[in-house]
Design a binder for these strands. Structure first.
Lengths: 161, 161
DNA sequence: TATTGTTATACTCTATAACTATA
DNA sequence: TATAGTTATAGAGTATAACAATA
């Protein structure tokens, strides 16, 4: 969003990526909200369906904190789309089991996600679309693979009770 | 970040745009931090240098709220990079004047910004780089021009004093 | 001792509301 | 009445710390 260059938006990669990802995110959020889902809920549903996975594993896949995963799974349980089940091999861990209703919702939400992506990519000429996806994949696996660590502020210890 | 597709990351446009923009943003923040700047501060400096502009005008350009602009200008003043000056035509408004030091810092921060962008784009083959920029510009001015409005939550009135 | 999941909470960010002074 | 800038603060989002159960 923040314009990084004086009157040369066309080559401001920061602006271009921020703007497109932000707008796409709002589109996705609005589309998924029709099913009562957030992007995170969709993400968890889809990956929990693939195979038996614990909260930690799903958090890793979705690049969420484990505490964020707790509230996401809470929401899925409350909506009747998934359930926590004890792991048979590790009594600390919970397997996220997708319900029948959750399976159906995930099928529809995946259609929505694909539709939003297809609509965006479909607005581009074939050659350009292919090059865009190729270039982004090259950046994601190459020069823009890992974030620079931010100058993190310190956090005070919690008050003892 | 949130993976939107089951084991098909290569075509997950949400993931690709979110990841690249996020990583680029952290790179930019880290690089600008060396000068003691945030992306917003750089943005305001650069556009305040172009011509006489008020806070509101600069907020518009940087897509910031006017209250966010207040803290950004506070930071610039505190660092001795810019000053608030009364507008000669509207006594409500403040012109953001860049100091000599601010002018020099802006020159260097623009070099940093350009360098980060050039490094990222330089990791791509020529044809792919050109197509990426063309495709992103087409999306920004076309299908992904305007955000979908989020289902905004209500805000309670402030307590009267 | 380390790890999973949980709760509680602190912190950041940003937007909203109300306000002052002008227009 | 409307607008520029300010202050105070609400609210969302998320990360940190501590903890209980288990490995």
């Amino acid at each position: 969003m923040t314009s990084m260059a004086p009157s040369r938006t066309e080559h401001d990669l920061s602006f271009l990526l921020d703007h497109t990802s932000h707008v796409l995110r709002t589109r996705m959020a609005a589309a998924l909200a029709e099913l009562g889902l957030t992007a995170r809920m969709h993400c968890v549903l889809v990956h929990a369906l693939e195979e038996e996975r614990t909260q930690i594993q799903l958090a890793e896949i979705g690049d969420m904190d484990k505490t964020t995963m707790v509230v996401t799974v809470d929401a899925l349980e409350k909506a009747g789309l998934a359930e926590r089940r004890p792991s048979s091999t590790d009594r600390r861990a919970r397997i996220i089991a997708v319900t029948e209703k959750g399976t159906e919702v995930a099928r529809r939400s995946q259609e929505i996600v694909d539709g939003v992506h297809t609509a965006a990519l479909g607005s581009l000429p074939d050659k350009e679309r292919e090059a865009l996806v190729r270039a982004l994949n090259r950046l994601v696996t190459g020069h823009l693979e890992t974030p620079a660590e931010a100058p993190q502020p310190v956090r005070r210890a919690r008050e003892r009770s």
